[in-house]
Write a protein that binds this DNA or RNA. Structure first.
Lengths: 215, 215
DNA sequence: CAGCCATTCATACTTTAGTCTGAAATTCAT
DNA sequence: ATGAATTTCAGACTAAAGTATGAATGGCTG
């Protein structure tokens, strides 16, 4: 059972998150905080496994709250939930100790995936955040691959897959064996944390990993 | 050599079509029109074999332009290119004398096929347009769901499918048997003219047949 | 140079997906 | 009420998809 604490100043957001998380058997919402200070206090008293933290909150923002919580309780994971306009704060958020960064309009299923992913010790960043980090990394010249570790060839395969092609067709297009395609695809599934090609294709289009030809 | 005239008000579309058609040895783009009036004028002066005509254009729309051109030069074939939202105009377009009707996001290869098909005297309709015409021909009364001949239940199944669910999961979600899901899915494939669930999912998202929940 | 990673391919296997055929119950409009 | 369409389900397939495991090659790097 994953014990979740929600920290967001918007009532509707909390209700929405609660609603979706309640449908998950292995997830339990153990508390709600309306600002950063409450989040810190509840994190200490409740000791949740993970906190869904809003970036912008009154009293204390998500970054500060994250820093304080991670300082005292490093085992508590924090998934930063934010709106699109806050994307400049990706780096600070990650530096503050957040294990993930996702947009608020994330799909329920995906949110759950992110939570589980984090509980498995993996980072989970929204694709657009990747670009930010990517640029940031070039400047600071350190930090490993955080997200989307797809190799060039895997990206080729995914691109073909996202055109709706079968393994045989992909193999033909890329001049390799169907066996090879299967290998790549299995690896893609693992890296993207999806179960089948349909999910992979949907993931790719949703996260803009594709290049539409579009006449 | 097939002499082609392109009529579309969007520069990018014209460039895109030009780009793909240039790779075809037996196809020559002999002119470009930015609106219906230009299309009519160029059709007369250039006398192309076929016109790729956008439905929605300033000055004069594709329907009107098609009528005028076919009235004067019935030997000039016209392939209507349109976006999904214009699907209500399939019938008028065909009645105006268009030899074919295709979506703008058609694959290059498929577009070329359509062109050759028309030059051989065959009609070439987008699959969904065909159904529309069938229905329209018989009922000829009203046309609520002109396109998307998917039944409500099939739409349910497609919606679940587009979430990346398996047949078993869909069956569970909709409280029916996996057999039933399979039946629906097979029918969906037929109606959408796709070969598998991945293509169906991609089709659904591309054509906005999905409903984003959004936390 | 040794080692890691990407890429390739293979065998063998299990599990879904998808098709075909057939059919019963229900709704709905003519 | 008859016919048509929808929805439901089944059996019996065939064809793909996906997993697990292992292995050879070549490139790049410390």
């Amino acid at each position: 059972m994953i014990r979740v604490l929600i920290a967001d100043d918007h009532h509707v957001v909390r209700r929405g998150l609660l609603f979706f998380l309640k449908t998950q058997k292995d997830i339990e919402v153990v508390g709600e905080a309306k600002n950063g200070l409450e989040a810190v206090a509840l994190a200490e008293s409740i000791q949740p496994d993970i906190i869904l933290m809003d970036l912008v909150m009154p009293e204390m923002d998500g970054i500060q709250a994250t820093k304080r919580i991670k300082a005292k309780f490093p085992q508590i994971e924090i998934l930063m939930l934010t709106s699109f306009s806050d994307r400049d704060h990706v780096v600070p958020a990650m530096e503050a100790g957040a294990a993930g960064y996702q947009l608020k309009d994330i799909e329920p299923d995906e949110l759950v995936l992110s939570i589980r992913r984090i509980m498995r010790g993996e980072n989970t960043l929204h694709p657009e955040a990747t670009t930010t980090l990517e640029m940031d990394r070039q400047e600071s010249k350190n930090a490993p691959h955080v997200l989307n570790p797809l190799t060039p060839r895997e990206q080729d395969v995914l691109a073909e897959l996202t055109k709706g092609k079968s393994n045989r067709e992909i193999a033909s297009s890329l001049f390799v064996t169907e066996k090879t395609v299967k290998t790549h695809i299995s690896n893609i599934f693992t890296k993207l944390h999806v179960q089948d090609r349909t999910q992979a294709a949907l993931y790719a289009v949703k996260h803009g990993l594709t290049e539409g030809s579009g006449v």
